[in-house]
Amino acid sequence: MSTRRSVLSMMFGFFVLGLVAPAHAQEAAGAVADSGLVQWSIITAGFALAVAAFGAALGQGRAVAAAAEAIARNPGAAGEIRGALILGLVLIESLVIYVLLVTLILFFIKPFGG
């Protein structure tokens, strides 16, 4: 329970830091018209990657745990379970790669200017 509370408080702290940092940055770069949009897009990209990594880690952990349990119950089906596990992990990983690509687009291609 305390671990969950500390993780939640850390996430809240990161969120507050993410909100505070662009406010300071906006004061310095107030002359640029749409700098706020660029900053928010970069913050969004960072958070999106963090959330994607968190969700994928959770999903992959559950998948591996289920596969290990299934192999322990039925060692004869280890080959098929292994194939399904690899396929599932790759599909979960593909979602993270989507988010990585979107993040790279927001960081480097800058579709909103900046």
Binding site: I86, L89, V90, S94, I97
Partner: peptide
């Protein structure tokens, strides 16, 4: 190729 490389990484680790 990116997803193929990712699959290669995962397959090697699992195996």
């Amino acid at each position: 190729a990116l997803l193929g490389a990712s699959a290669w990484v995962i397959r090697d680790l699992v195996e």
